[in-house]
């Protein structure tokens, strides 16, 4: 992929990933085929800030975990009153990192 396109993608999407992974993503994109660019736009990456808001509002019912694709943990959270409230609070701090991690997994799968 052209460096200009890669730079544009990184500039618009860096908030979706952990900052220390950006050079790695840059490298992956440069090696990827040009046809992957449109596919990347439709990946449906989750915004970590939005997920934090969802976690603050609906985290007790596991909605944050369902939204990022951790269905099993979402069910566990839902059935245990948000892990007796403790897991709900822990997830306020964890959910952004987990969202970025899953976004990276998504882009990795897309570029394979």
């Amino acid at each position: 992929m052209e460096q200009q396109k890669v730079d544009m993608y990184i500039a618009t999407s860096s908030k979706f990933f952990e900052s220390h992974l950006i050079p790695h993503i840059n490298e992956m994109l440069v090696r990827a085929d040009d046809s992957k660019y449109i596919y990347l736009q439709s990946l449906g990456l989750k915004d970590p800030t939005t997920m934090l808001i969802v976690s603050l509002i609906g985290g007790h019912l596991g909605i944050d975990r369902f939204m990022i694709g951790d269905t099993g943990l979402g069910i566990a959270k839902l059935l245990t009153c948000g892990g007796l409230g403790i897991w709900t609070i822990v997830d306020f701090f964890m959910i952004q990192g987990r969202t970025r991690e899953l976004n990276f997994e998504k882009i990795q799968r897309a570029l394979l």
């Binding site: 007790h60 019912l61 839902l78 059935l79 245990t80 009153c81 948000g82 007796l84 409230g85």
Partner: peptide
Amino acid sequence: PACIFRYVTGYPCPSCGS
């Protein structure tokens, strides 16, 4: 108070009473 949801809203969550 085991359930934050009930503590805040006054209504039980799906798993209250479990």
